[in-house]
C-alpha cells in the first residue's frame, strides 16, 4: 500500500507538463531554439486568442512557430519577425501591445488616474489642515436646542 503511494508520488513528480511545441519543430541550435521559445511566448495564437503560440496546439499556431523558426535560422532579428507577423495579423498578434499613440492610454492611463487620485487626496488633506479652523466652527445652538440638552443632561444626572 505504502509502496504504491510512493510510486504514485514519484510518477507525479517525474511527469512533465505537456508542451505544445513538438520535437520535430525544434531547432538543433539550443541558443536559437531558446530565442524561438521566448519569442513565441509573445505571439498570440489567433485561433485561441488567449494563448501564446508557444502554448497552443492549434494548427495555425504550429505553422507560425515553424515560420518563426525558419526566419530565425535565416538570420532575422526578433523585431523583424514581429513586423512580419504584425503586417499580416495586426498588433493583436502580439500579446504585449506596442507603445504608440493609440495605446498610450492603455499603458499609462492607470498611472495617470492614480496620480490624479493622489493629487485629489493631497489637496483634500491640505485643505482640511489649513482652512480647517473656520470651516469647523459649529453653528451656535438655538435656545430650543439648549433647553433639550439641559433636559437630557439632568435626566442623565438623575440616573447616575
Amino acid at each position: 500500500m505504502i509502496r504504491s503511494i510512493i510510486l504514485a508520488l514519484v510518477l507525479v513528480v517525474l511527469s512533465m507538463p505537456a508542451f505544445a511545441v513538438e520535437p520535430g519543430e525544434m531547432l538543433k541550435d539550443p541558443a536559437l531554439e531558446a530565442r524561438a521559445r521566448e519569442l513565441s511566448k509573445e505571439v498570440r495564437c489567433l485561433v485561441c486568442q488567449n494563448q501564446s503560440i508557444d502554448d497552443s496546439n492549434a494548427g495555425l499556431a504550429k505553422d507560425l512557430r515553424v515560420i518563426l523558426r525558419e526566419r530565425l535560422v535565416a538570420g532575422d532579428s526578433d523585431s523583424e519577425i514581429k513586423t512580419f507577423l504584425v503586417e499580416r495579423y495586426g498588433d493583436f498578434v502580439l500579446l504585449k501591445p506596442p507603445v504608440k499613440a493609440e495605446t498610450l492610454f492603455l499603458w499609462y492611463g492607470p498611472f495617470a488616474i492614480g496620480v490624479l487620485g493622489a493629487i485629489g487626496v493631497a489637496v483634500f488633506l491640505l485643505r482640511r489642515r489649513d482652512g480647517g479652523g473656520d470651516e469647523a466652527v459649529p453653528m451656535p445652538l438655538s435656545d430650543d436646542e439648549r433647553k433639550r440638552i439641559d433636559a437630557l443632561m439632568s435626566e442623565q444626572d438623575r440616573k447616575a
Partner: peptide, 13 residues
C-alpha cells in the same frame, strides 16, 4: 497545401 499563402493573407481560420 502548407497554409503559407493563407498566412500571408492574414487568414486565421
Amino acid at each position: 497545401g502548407d497554409g503559407r499563402a493563407a498566412i500571408d493573407w492574414g487568414v486565421y481560420g
